[in-house]
Design a protein around this nucleic acid. Structure first.
Lengths: 317, 317
DNA sequence: ATGAAAGCGCTAACAC
DNA sequence: GTGTTAGCGCTTTCAT
C-alpha cells in the first residue's frame, strides 16, 4: 500500500474505501504511528499554531485571557506559542519577529503601547493575519475587546448613584489604549455631568496607587470617591486611605477595574469591572483562523460591573 | 551560487571564504531572507522548542514561573509552547501527547498529581527529555524545585519564635506533591516539638480557607497560629477570622506560602514563602536542553521566608 | 571553497 | 479508490 493511501486514510479523505481506511487506522494504532507535524507543516504550508503576544503575563489580568485563548485555539486543533513582551516595545517587536520565523499561522497580540507598538504590528500584519485583543495600536488591524468607555461610564454612574458627589479619577499609563480610553471616558462624563475634571496619573502598582491617593487628598481633601483605572492602583489607594484612617466606603468610595484576584482579596473588597474573557478569546481566535481574508474591523463586547463593598452607600455621618 | 553555499554562509560554517560569506549575508539582508524554521526542523530533527505544562495558569503562583521559563528558553534560542492542564489529569495527558506530536525537543512540566500524573509523564519521557518542576510525580525523572520541607519548617519555627504556642495547620489537596511535602513537614515538626499534630485540609480557594478556619476554631478555640499550605487558603482564613472579630496578628497569627500578590494585598499582609523562580526556571531549562543524556536527579533550591504583619508578636493582652 | 544531489515526512497533483 | 511522483526549504554528505 502506498504512503499516499495511508495519508488519505488517516486524514479522513472521502476518496478512500471504508475498508482500507479501517485497516490503515488499525495498523497505525498497532505501530503507535503519529504523523509528523513538521513534515506536514512543510508540505501543507500551515503549522496549525497561533502566536499569542501579551504585554506581561505577571499582570494579573492576563493569565485568564491566556488560558481562554489556549482553550479556543485547542478547540480548533491549533497550538499556542506564548510570547511575553515584559512591558518592553523592543521585546514585543522581537517577539513578533520570532513568531513569524516560527511560521505561526496567525498572531493574536495585546499591543503594549497604542502608538509605539504600531510599526512592528503593521510589519507583522504584512506577512500573516494579526488580531489585536484587549489593547490596540492600529485601526488598520482587527481588534477584539470590551467597550472600555461604556464600562468606565457605568462605573462612574454607579458611584454617583451610590450617593457620591466629589469624584476623583486616577488613571494609568496612557500609552496603553485601555487606560487612555478609560481616562477619556471619565473626562467626557465629567464634562457632561458638570463634574470637576481633575484627574491624576499613577503607575499600575500598589505604590503608584498609594502615591496617587496622597496627591488626590492633598488637592481635594473633600473627595468622596476615587475611581481607578485598574485594580492594582485601587488597592494601593485603599492601602493609603487605610493608613490615613480614612474609612472606605464610609468616607470615600473606591473602584478598580479588571476583576483580578486582588479586588476580591483586599478589604474592603473592591467594586470592579469584569470582562467576558471567553467571548473575547473566542472571537480573537476566530478572526485569526479566518486567515488573510479577515476584514479589518472591531468587535466590542460589553463588560460587567461587579459591585462590592468598597462602593456601599456612605455612612450617614 | 548554490543553496549549499548560502546555507553554509548563513550558519557561519568555517568551510567558506570570508568574501563569499559577506556577499551572502548582504544579499540575505537585502532580500529580507529569513531561514524557514520548518524546513530546518525537518532536516535537522530539532525544533528548538520547549513544551511547558502547567497545572493551571490562573493559579497565581504560575505566571511568574511561566515568564521565567520563557525568558530562559529564549536566552538559549528556544521558543515555548504553553499547555495548560486546567487541573485535569486527562487534559494533562492530552497536553503531553500534543506537545510530543508537535515535536518539541523537551518538556518541562509541573505535574498536577503526585501519583495520577505519573503514567503520562513516564510515557512522554520514553520519547523525549522530561523535566519536572515545582511539583513532581516520578522519582525516575529529573526534578527542579525548592525544598518544601525546609521552607515549611522555617515557617513553623518563625511562628514559634514569634511567641505562638498552639499552632494549627491547614493543608491543601495532598495530590499535589508540594502540599503533601508541606503537610509532612508539619507533622514531623509537631512530633519533634511535642506539638499537637492535628491538621485540617482545605480547597486552595478563599472559600476553602474560610471553611477550614471555621473547623479549626470549632475544635481548637484557643489556637494562636494558623499555618496554611498556600496564600489562597491563608487569605480565606484571614477573611473568616475577620468576620468573627478575631484580631490578626493580635490573637491569631496566620501564614501563607507562595508570595503571591494576594499575600501582599490582604490585610494584615501575610507572612509567606518566596521561591527563587528564576533559578528554578534556569535549572529546569538547562536540564531540558541537555537532552536525553540528562541524568535523573533532583535539584533543590532554598526558599525565602517573607515576614509580614500577620505574624507580628501577639498583643500583650 | 564550492557545487550537485539526496532526503528529512508529508500531501497534492496527476495518472490509472 | 489507489499508486506514482514531485516537491515543500533546509542541511549535509560527497565529489570536485
Amino acid at each position: 500500500m502506498s504512503t499516499a493511501t495511508a495519508s488519505r486514510a488517516l486524514s479522513g479523505s472521502p476518496l478512500i474505501s471504508a475498508d482500507t481506511a479501517d485497516r490503515v487506522k488499525a495498523a497505525a494504532e498497532g505501530l503507535r504511528y503519529r504523523s509528523d507535524h513538521i513534515g506536514r507543516a512543510l508540505r501543507s504550508r500551515a503549522t496549525l499554531s497561533l502566536g499569542l503576544v501579551v504585554p506581561n503575563i505577571t499582570n494579573p489580568f492576563f493569565p485568564a485571557l491566556v488560558q481562554a485563548v489556549e482553550i479556543e485555539a485547542k478547540r480548533a486543533g491549533w497550538s499556542m506559542l506564548l510570547a511575553d513582551s515584559l512591558d518592553s516595545v523592543d521585546i514585543e517587536r522581537e517577539n513578533l519577529d520570532l513568531l513569524i520565523g516560527r511560521r505561526v499561522d496567525a498572531i493574536v497580540a495585546s499591543p503594549l503601547h497604542r502608538t509605539r507598538s504600531r510599526p512592528a504590528l503593521a510589519a507583522a500584519a504584512e506577512i500573516l493575519p494579526v488580531v489585536q485583543f484587549d489593547r490596540h495600536a492600529s485601526d488598520a488591524l482587527p481588534y477584539v475587546g470590551v467597550d472600555q468607555r461604556a464600562a468606565m461610564t457605568a462605573v462612574l454612574e454607579h458611584v454617583v448613584a451610590a450617593g457620591r458627589r466629589r469624584v476623583a479619577y486616577v488613571g494609568a499609563n496612557t500609552g496603553e489604549s485601555t487606560a487612555a480610553e478609560r481616562l477619556s471616558a471619565f473626562r467626557r462624563w465629567a464634562v457632561e455631568r458638570g463634574q470637576e475634571r481633575g484627574h491624576w496619573l499613577a503607575d499600575s502598582t500598589l505604590e503608584g496607587g498609594d502615591d496617587a491617593a496622597r496627591r488626590v487628598l492633598a488637592r481635594r481633601p473633600d473627595v468622596d470617591a476615587i475611581v481607578c483605572c485598574n485594580d492594582a492602583i485601587a488597592v494601593g489607594v485603599l492601602a493609603h486611605l487605610g493608613e490615613r484612617g480614612i474609612d472606605v466606603p464610609g468616607q470615600v468610595a473606591v473602584t478598580g477595574f479588571d476583576d483580578s484576584v486582588m479586588s476580591l482579596v483586599c478589604r474592603p473588597a473592591l467594586t470592579t469591572v469584569a470582562q467576558p474573557l471567553d467571548a473575547v478569546a473566542r472571537e480573537a481566535v476566530a478572526w485569526a483562523q479566518n486567515g488573510p481574508e479577515a476584514p479589518t474591523g472591531r468587535t466590542l463586547f460589553e463588560a460587567r460591573l461587579v459591585i462590592r463593598r468598597s462602593t456601599a452607600a456612605p455612612n450617614p455621618a
